[in-house]
Amino acid sequence: MSGKRVVTLTINGDQTEVLCEPRQTLLEVLRNNLDFTGTKEGCSNGNCGACTVLMDGRPVVSCLVLAVEAEGAELRTIEGVACGSHLDEVQSAFLEGAALQCGICTPGFIVQTEALLAENPNPSEDDIRFYLAGNLCRCTGYDKIVRAVQAAAEKRQVARSV
């Protein structure tokens, strides 16, 4: 179809080309064109955080980014957080701390937490609650999510100091 554009971007370390319409959101292209369905759709207007991905290291709600805006970008999605079958500290902390229930919000929370810890490796409880306030959990595991983020930060700090 005329008007389609080829967007070249790197997703979880792999360079990818995708043919998409200029009106398509990054979320739609990730989920429907590229089958990266780990990134979830909750509201489509930036209010639930379920679709959070890292774009050049910054967390963005991919429902509010056009796919064409991701030209040349480095993306990290939930599928790129673990190293092979080894969960990273954040994922392990969410699993061990029961910070996930139905799990539909979990990818967004984990990716947002990765951004938080990259920016602030030793966040206070208030920092965590503020930084993750854009992510919605209906089930709701908020209390355990805070504890999981604290545990992940601590684990990562210890790993770095060894």
Partner: peptide, 9 residues
């Protein structure tokens, strides 16, 4: 099912 949920699988 925590692993599947935490990895997006």
């Amino acid at each position: 099912d925590g692993m599947a949920k935490a990895t997006g699988a």
